[in-house]
Amino acid sequence: MSEAVQLRRRLLLLTPLGVAAAGGVAFLAMLRGMQSGNFDPRGVPSPLVGRRIPDFSLPAQPPDGVGFGSADLLAAGRPVLVNFFASWCVPCVLEAPVLMQLKEAGVPIWGVAYKDQPDAAAQFLRANGDPYARLARDEPGRVAIDFGVYGVPESYFVDRSGIVRWRWAGGLSADTVSQELQPLLRKYA
């Protein structure tokens, strides 16, 4: 065998080690990222987290008579949990008691009735409790598209400067609240 062929053979036999080492370094970086919280392989990704809320203005949803928009969220002066819900959604019923507990704990929750009749949504709130400090309705669902809503229920935690800090697709549970939302509430209070 000539020297060049032998060298090539040596290099070829080194490739498995190289590939494995690269993989190992990458996984180490992922684990470090998971520990520091800037790498999360789970969760439905939201491009909105870390960005400002989209500009919007929504009409009122009874029993609240005003509605709200992005300007109101900025003017709130404190972090707000924006919750998209609908009367036709079964997980929203399951989520309702968790939201009521949050309300009792003093967390401001602003609700958006998503693709819903105003009467049906009002009836839903009478039946399952009304945890919302402000209410608006998004009947055509356009603002939900701007937010990147995946499905109802879905919640966005917006800090006082209007930056989305956290998003949860699906119903909130007591565990989610204690493990994910409470630390954020403390951090951005």
Binding site: L14, L17, A20, G24, F27
Partner: peptide, 16 residues
Amino acid sequence: LGLLALVIGTALALFA
């Protein structure tokens, strides 16, 4: 991961 690096790395280095 450290364990894996040790086991797999040693074997592949030996292989090379």
